[in-house]
Amino acid sequence: TKSLQAKGMEVVFVSSDKNEEAFTDYFAEMPWKALPFVDRERKAALSNKFKVSGIPSFVILDKDGSAITTDGRSAVSEDPTGEEFPWKPKPSMDEVDPAVTLAEPVDARAVSENGDAPILVTVLNDTQHTVRFEWVDYEGALVPYKVKPHWQTWVQETYKSHPWRLTDEDSGRELARVRFTGDTTTSVSKLMQLSLPTEGAVDVKAVVDQAVIFEAANVSYGLSAEGCGPGEQLNNTRAVNDRFVVCPAGDQLYTFESRSGLCLGVGAPHGMWYPNDGFQAVLVPKDSASAVMRVLPARNGSEGFHSFEPVEHPGYLLNHCDGKIWFFDGPANNELVFSQDASWQLLDAESGTGPWKP
């Protein structure tokens, strides 16, 4: 009870006892406030307003007197220390609108400043990651707050000037670093998309009805965005979301927009580089420089095939390896295998015929 009181919770007992003597004996064991027993009229009004049909009943009210939940018993039993206090309903994806996500990306130099503009932030973890939320303090140190698995919600009182860092709990990879600018309800995937680099945005225009499928030279592999959100690495499996719309971006330059409906393309942001490995091929904003690739003759020399080089990382080629899609700058030990893995045939998404030619 003390931990909940420290968070601002106040309990008021409304008795359904048959007489005042029973109320007095029962209330003597309680550490909280009570509605006077003689005020039966108000007790009846409260029972009617919140549709109390049995006892015990626990209704949780917001500061303005509106009901947060009439099933407070479940809320408290599931969260006795009040980690999610005041237990407001968790948002659905229908409530998460990127147009009203009040947040802005910040870089690693950003630190907390003043604390005179409090806000309330609600973030739904709609990714497959287990996400760690860390506050960046006034000295730039990271202060761990919460870890939320898939489909759980983080609710946090913070301030407009305070940056937050989101990381993948398993790999330690940074997913987003943002500063919230007002009360907002959003999702991890929206914050990831917001945090992706957009410098050097390019003018791209989709070729009407020109959707393609990537097929590797060793044809059992493809390129797929199935199950991928913003900033997440693409797979080399063949699945539903393996179709990409061709978008010209200059002489022999193209972006390939995923048909997943997220307005994202294949790219290689600077932050996704792994020493001795290369760059992860991930979903990035389709109009960012990170999404632009140059179409080259196939590394394996085959007619009808191509290799793809990100303009921000010359010398690296789109490649599949160990179930994932990468950009590598050369073979680890076998040129024949590398040249096959870095050569792709693009087929028409509807008919499966091809090859597509730039």
Rank of each mutant, 00 (worst) to 15 (best):
K2S: 07
Q5C: 13
K7P: 13
V14P: 05
S15R: 03
E21S: 14
A28F: 00
W32D: 06
F37T: 08
V38P: 00
K51F: 00
I60V: 14
K63P: 13
S66Q: 14
S66G: 11
S66K: 13
S77H: 10
S77L: 10
E83Y: 11
K90T: 15
E95A: 04
G115H: 05
V123Q: 00
L124A: 03
Q128I: 08
Q128K: 13
F133G: 01
E134V: 03
W135E: 15
V136A: 01
V136S: 01
V143L: 09
W151C: 03
Q152C: 02
T153Q: 12
E169Y: 07
D170M: 12
D170N: 15
R173E: 12
T185A: 06
T186P: 01
S189F: 15
K190R: 08
K190I: 15
L194Y: 04
L196F: 04
T198R: 13
E199Y: 10
G200M: 09
V202T: 03
K205T: 10
V207K: 08
G222E: 09
A249C: 07
Q252W: 09
E257P: 04
L262C: 02
P269H: 13
Y274V: 11
P275Q: 09
A291I: 05
A298D: 06
S302I: 03
V311C: 05
H313S: 05
P314A: 13
L318A: 00
D329F: 09
G330E: 13
N334Y: 12
L347K: 15
D348L: 09
A349L: 08
G354R: 09
K357I: 06
P358F: 14
